[in-house]
Amino acid sequence: MSLDTVAEDIREKARARAEDIRSEAEAEAEEILAEAERDAEEIRSEREADVESTIEQEREQRLSSAKLEAKQARLEARRDVLGDVRETVEEEIAGIEGDDREDLTAALLEGTVAEFEDDATLEVQGRADDEELIESLLSEMDYDGEYAGEYDCLGGVVVTSEGSRVRVNNTFDAILEDVWEENLGEISDELFEQ
């Protein structure tokens, strides 16, 4: 065997070995690249899921917030309507005149006076516009009572006794308040039937 043949044989083995190493390196590189692509795809999928979850959470929060705002707006609108109705009722009550006002005031005064002892000296307050009416009603009663001045109300009377600490508020306002509170649910249902 000649030296050239041996050298050629060594070169051939070296080339084959180099080719094997290159093939192995390419296979390893492809495996590393494939694994990197799988990892990247997994990371991308996780990120997409996180983003979608975040978007869904924000959407739910905004939807919930919008529903709450709408509910608050409806409640406020209802309160406004109920306030308007209450104001209209108060105006109607304040506008009661003539025999109706006299009959109502007399009934309230009689009912209030009945709360006191027969010999009590009573001080009766009422709406400024009702002073003459109250004085007239007091003059017709068996009780010792006098008009004691104005009371800011829609009508009716507030009676106190000089000898006791009892004070009875039998005004249109007090009666309206009781009726309003007792019937607010029905009033609301009637106004806002759904």
Rank of each mutant, 00 (worst) to 15 (best):
L3H: 10
D4S: 11
T5Y: 14
T5E: 14
V6K: 12
D9Q: 15
I10W: 07
A14R: 04
A16C: 06
R17I: 15
E19Q: 11
D20V: 10
D20A: 14
I21M: 09
I21T: 06
R22H: 07
R22K: 10
S23Q: 13
A25E: 05
E26N: 15
A27K: 09
E28P: 03
E28R: 12
E31W: 02
I32F: 09
L33K: 06
A34E: 13
A34F: 13
E37M: 10
R38C: 01
D39G: 05
A40S: 05
A40G: 13
E41K: 08
E41A: 15
S45H: 14
S45R: 14
S45M: 10
E46L: 08
R47V: 05
R47E: 08
E48T: 05
E48R: 14
E48K: 12
E52P: 04
S53I: 00
Q57M: 10
Q57P: 14
R59K: 07
E60C: 06
S65F: 06
L68H: 08
L68D: 05
L68N: 08
E69V: 12
A73S: 02
A73M: 13
R74L: 12
L75S: 15
E76W: 09
R79A: 09
R79E: 12
D80K: 12
D80C: 10
V81P: 07
V81C: 04
G83H: 01
V85D: 03
R86A: 01
R86S: 09
R86W: 02
E87K: 11
T88S: 12
T88M: 15
V89C: 10
E90Q: 02
E91V: 05
I93G: 10
I96R: 08
E97F: 04
E97Y: 01
G98R: 01
G98N: 05
G98T: 00
D99K: 10
D99S: 11
D100S: 10
D103A: 13
L104M: 12
L104K: 07
L104A: 07
L108H: 00
L109S: 02
E110H: 06
E110Y: 06
T112G: 04
V113L: 04
A114P: 07
A114S: 09
F116S: 06
D118F: 11
D118Y: 11
A120T: 04
L122P: 00
L122M: 04
E123F: 03
E123R: 03
V124F: 04
G126H: 03
R127Q: 06
A128C: 11
D129K: 15
D130L: 01
E131M: 03
E132M: 00
E135R: 05
E135P: 04
M141L: 09
D142K: 02
D142A: 08
D144H: 06
A148Q: 03
E150G: 05
E150P: 08
Y151F: 02
D152K: 15
C153N: 04
L154Y: 03
G155K: 12
G155A: 08
G156I: 01
G156M: 07
S161D: 01
S164T: 13
R165K: 13
R165S: 08
V166P: 02
V166M: 13
V166Y: 08
N169K: 12
F172H: 09
D173F: 15
A174T: 02
I175F: 06
I175K: 01
I175G: 04
L176K: 14
V179W: 09
E181P: 00
E182R: 13
N183Q: 12
L184S: 03
E186H: 11
S188F: 00
E190C: 11
L191C: 03
L191P: 00
F192W: 01
Q194T: 08
Q194Y: 10
